[in-house]
Nucleic acid binder design. Sequence first.
DNA 1: AACCAATACAACCGCAAATCC
DNA 2: GGGATTTGCGGTTGTATTGGT
Length: 276
Amino acid sequence: MDVYRYESSRSEEEMDVRKGPWTEEEDSVLKAYVNIHGEGRWNSVARLSGLRRTGKSCRLRWLNYMRPEIKRGNISLEEQLLILQLHSRWGNRWSKIAQHMPGRTDNEIKNYWRTRVQKQAKQLKCDVNSKQFKDAMRYVWIPRLIERIRASSQSTSGQPSTITSITTESGSVQIDPSLLPESSGTSSDSQLSSVSDPTDCYNPQSVWNYPNNLRNVAAGTWGRDDGVIEFQATEEQSNGWSVGGGGDTSMETVWNEENIWFLQQQLHDEDSALMT
DNA sequence: AACCAATACAACCGCAAATCC
DNA sequence: GGGATTTGCGGTTGTATTGGT
């Protein structure tokens, strides 16, 4: 175990601390230092590497930008779905949400939530925590996301299918077909588009290819105060979920069965822990 | 082409928890 | 036990980029 040792530290004023965007040179210094000495003890990194940055700044730069496993850029539809689901469980606990999204940082997820999700709430003129907005997410946004995920997988399979209802504990909720994505082209679509996140999908591996016992993680359950909503395609039999056929094993993605299985176990364990 | 608004994202700040002495 | 220091987290801000007019 690494033992902490406090070293006399100069004040920030003495160090003439730099702020603002990192330069390439600073990045390479930080990278070289961490490669040799490892992560952690960020104040030491700041002092010993010669960087005129605070330890906090070094830590943030490394964790949010320079870590080799960082996956920056477009957030896939599946990831969006997962963010919505995990946020419904844990609220603004971004680091916890990020733990379940390999390669994504809490900062990135937080930014996604603020720029996309809160924007939608604003457009709907309601609070992001209001029942109205949560219902909009449950009944419109998420089905729409699911539909888009399916559509992207169908583009390779050519097998049509439509989500027509959401089953809750208290019964089945029919979805107005006009509320589903690109299904009607009616005048209501203008309002709908404010609910649907137009982010393009760059990683279209289908959640529908997951084994039956895993699908709920990515596409199925949505936590709510009074129970759980499950999404299902009522016109399909259980095997109807496998829209994508044999799946896309060539896709470089975190969405492999092993990770989904691990995620489900994690969620189950944490929920169990919360119960006790 | 120029301007403006919206968007995306990097980075900072304050606070609390963890750790050390 | 308590103060000093470090670390981690969530909220917020600043700025570069993009898109529309």
